[in-house]
Design a protein around this nucleic acid. Structure first.
Length: 412
RNA sequence: CGGAGACUAGUUCACCGGUAGAACGCUCGCUUUGGGAGCGAGAAGCACGGGGUUCAAUUCCCCGGUCUCCGACCA
């Protein structure tokens, strides 16, 4: 991709009042655009990061046997009345009325998934079913804030699973838990699984995936040995107490919640009459689980965690491009950079080539730092024909390499 | 929804009771090219909306809107 063609360009100054680091850098870098508080467009760069994350999640979900679907966002009032959540979740739901019919914009999909299941299953042989989708969630937050971390409309991956027994649900629940940890690890985050309350979703205890971050809104009490973590909202112990397994005192820390998993048992199935015929011929209610990962929030979290005073430092796995190729303008060197770009692209490397003319070297460096692609390659008179200067975004060290060496290094 | 701050050029800001300035960005020309380049020329704003005070309001006052922060709230 030629940077000269990329829409839009970076912005030198962040909007005046913006405080959240993720908002500042994502807006300045041209990853997102704000329509209103809590409502953002993912621009091409942001969309690329989202696609990288989405693909990782998809791979991990598929490994658990889940299948990808896409459920609607506009829901009739009737389906929400079946579980009583039309009234119970009134605060978070966006509701609309048109020609005397009432609708809600989706803030979750348990009801929709259960409706699917009751229409398309009948016997125990049809279970379990595991389906997920990536789609927008609408939540009427009292106050949208912290940039992309708390929007009124955001992208989420939600997975639903339905089983014929609590044991089967529990087994899959643990599987998803591991898949989530793997997913977060792959995008560059180390998540802590914490016990929490279920809010409008369930009265039973749930698990949240929390990432340590000073700017987070949640707080957990946890053991650094990894055997205990609870959201402070339900924690019955306090920091400083020794943990049971002797890993030293419990700590209290600010965190960002990037995912969560719920076990509903038969509570929703009973209300919606989602049942199956078991071997004996008897009718039984099904067991529901639901599991979410906030995709847009994940992008914001990565920026909060991985940046310096010049810009973003994307983990390799989710960076919008593999390489930021910077050409320091010079007629003589133009064929060199053209050739190098082609060689990189032909080897399947995603390259953002800053081909702008009449833009100083300093400005190109500053933009490269802001955008945060992990590897910066420079082509100039100084590097020489067929050679590039390699610099990792997270280091000050540079080295000049033959293109073939750089290619080898990129492939490894 | 309560509290605080803000709203003036594309952006960041300044000024001011007498209808507006800078920087950056943008356009054109020349010159430049290893950390946000230089010179010259140019385009660009009825000052968030509405009301009030005043001879005169972008400026003071009131109402509304929007944004940011704090709080309450929260998969």
């Amino acid at each position: 991709m030629r940077y000269s063609k990329l829409f839009p360009k970076t912005i030198k100054e962040a909007p005046r009042d913006e405080v959240a680091i993720n908002a500042k850098y994502l807006l300045r870098g041209g990853f997102i655009d704000k329509l209103m508080a809590g409502s953002y467009t993912l621009l091409p760069l942001g969309k690329r990061v989202e696609q990288k994350i989405t693909q990782i999640i998809r791979e991990e979900m598929n490994k658990t046997g889940a299948q990808e679907i896409l459920m609607p966002l506009l829901h009739p009032k009737s389906i929400w009345n079946e579980t009583g959540r039309w009234d119970k979740a009134d605060e978070v739901m966006y509701k609309l009325k048109k020609d005397d019919k009432e609708f809600a914009l989706s803030f979750t999909h348990e009801e929709i998934f259960l409706d699917l299941i009751r229409k398309h299953t009948s016997t125990y042989r049809d279970f379990p079913v595991k389906a997920y989708h990536f789609s927008t969630k609408f939540r009427s937050e009292l106050r949208a804030k912290s940039g992309i971390l708390r929007g009124r409309e955001f992208l989420m991956k939600d997975l639903y699973s339905i089983h014929t027994s609590q044991e089967d649900l529990d087994k899959y629940y643990d599987e998803v838990r591991d898949a989530y940890l793997k997913t977060f690890e792959r995008v560059g985050l180390s998540a802590i699984v914490a016990e929490a309350a279920g809010g409008v979703f369930t009265d039973s205890t749930t698990h949240e995936f929390q990432v340590l971050c000073e700017t987070g809104e949640d707080e957990i009490i946890y053991c650094s040995g990894g055997d205990f973590a609870q959201n402070v909202e339900i924690a019955k112990v306090s920091e400083g107490k020794p943990c049971d397994l002797g890993h030293g005192p419990l700590k209290r820390a600010k965190v960002i919640e990037v995912g969560n998993i719920f076990r509903f048992g038969t509570s929703y199935s009973e209300k919606m009459d989602v049942s199956f015929t078991e071997r004996s011929g008897k009718k039984q209610f099904t067991y529901l689980g639901s599991y979410g990962i906030g995709v847009t929030r994940l992008i914001g979290t990565l920026v909060e965690l991985f940046h310096d005073d010049k810009g973003i430092i994307w983990p390799k796995e989710v960076a919008p491009f593999d390489v930021h190729l910077v050409h320091i303008e010079d007629k003589e060197t133009e064929p060199w950079v053209r050739d190098i770009y082609k060689r990189l692209a032909d080897s399947g490397i995603d390259v953002l080539w800053d081909d702008r003319e009449n833009v100083s070297a300093g400005e190109k460096f500053a933009d490269a730092d802001l955008i945060g692609i992990p590897v910066r390659l420079i082509v100039s008179k100084k590097t020489g024909e067929g050679r590039v200067e390699w610099k990792n975004r997270d280091s000050e060290k540079t080295e000049t390499l033959e293109v073939s060496e750089a290619l080898k290094k990129l492939k490894s």
